[in-house]
Design a protein around this nucleic acid. Sequence first.
DNA 1: TGCAGTTTTTAGAACTGTTCTAAACAACTT
DNA 2: AAGTTGTTTAGAACAGTTCTAAAAACTGCA
Lengths: 135, 135
Amino acid sequence: MPGTSPDFTTRLRAAGLRPTRQRVALARLLFEGEHRHVTAEGLHAEVRGTRLPVSLATVYNALNQFRDAGLLREVVVAPGRSYFDTNTGHHHHFFVEPDGELHDFPSDKVTIAGLPAPPKGTRLSRVDVIVRVRR
Amino acid sequence: MPGTSPDFTTRLRAAGLRPTRQRVALARLLFEGEHRHVTAEGLHAEVRGTRLPVSLATVYNALNQFRDAGLLREVVVAPGRSYFDTNTGHHHHFFVEPDGELHDFPSDKVTIAGLPAPPKGTRLSRVDVIVRVRR
DNA sequence: TGCAGTTTTTAGAACTGTTCTAAACAACTT
DNA sequence: AAGTTGTTTAGAACAGTTCTAAAAACTGCA
């Protein structure tokens, strides 16, 4: 099953990151199963259930490095809290307002027409669509 | 010129807010001219140029109350900082990435097709489109 | 207008999420 | 194995925001 290999050591190395125990442990949590959305606090709580202790600072470091390396995407939906998304492909988000739940939806079917040109001297970086819903 | 009346006292009262000196001063800064985007810190710095001293806590209180009253719209574009937009109508945003500049663009011409239905048990609240650009 | 009742403001403390610091440690190179 | 470099860590520091309790201001009513 090529491309799905859970060889996190080489995946990290390929991203230009040393495969330390901590990074491998975090990568395993993040990339082993289905796509997921995590916060630093949440991932830190999760890694506590592991043999290897990982500090909160390391979780923050790793999340930022993974994002910079293109392994994660940061999603800004609520003030004062960052979500990281293991799905780095083209897609958008549902955000369930009071609870802070986040769900992906594919951008396949979604078309956005009529966007104005970027302001002078800027180039397009990304278009985020956040569909906010309430219970 | 009806509808453009700068009678902030009655506008605040209509929104269910007591027209205190501080709120009137802030409303004047926010709603007197063109539409604008402010942060709490920015508005606080601005009101310092006024006769009336207004504390940072009051700026936060007022921004939150104005938003709850529908006078402002909160825009979440960057982690750890809230922007408030005096334009509460339908529109979207350009966000210039490194500097944190925010620009409106009307949603008139923009059409979004193919959005999936909200998850079960939720109803649509708002669709935010953020076009991120870089210099 | 003066007074009572309620809301608002304020300074500062508290809190939350995130980054920094400098020392201990682990990974790579030879 | 030793040396070099990069990483982790606890805790301090920081930024943005909210809370607290007391003082001040708004409002309605006599």
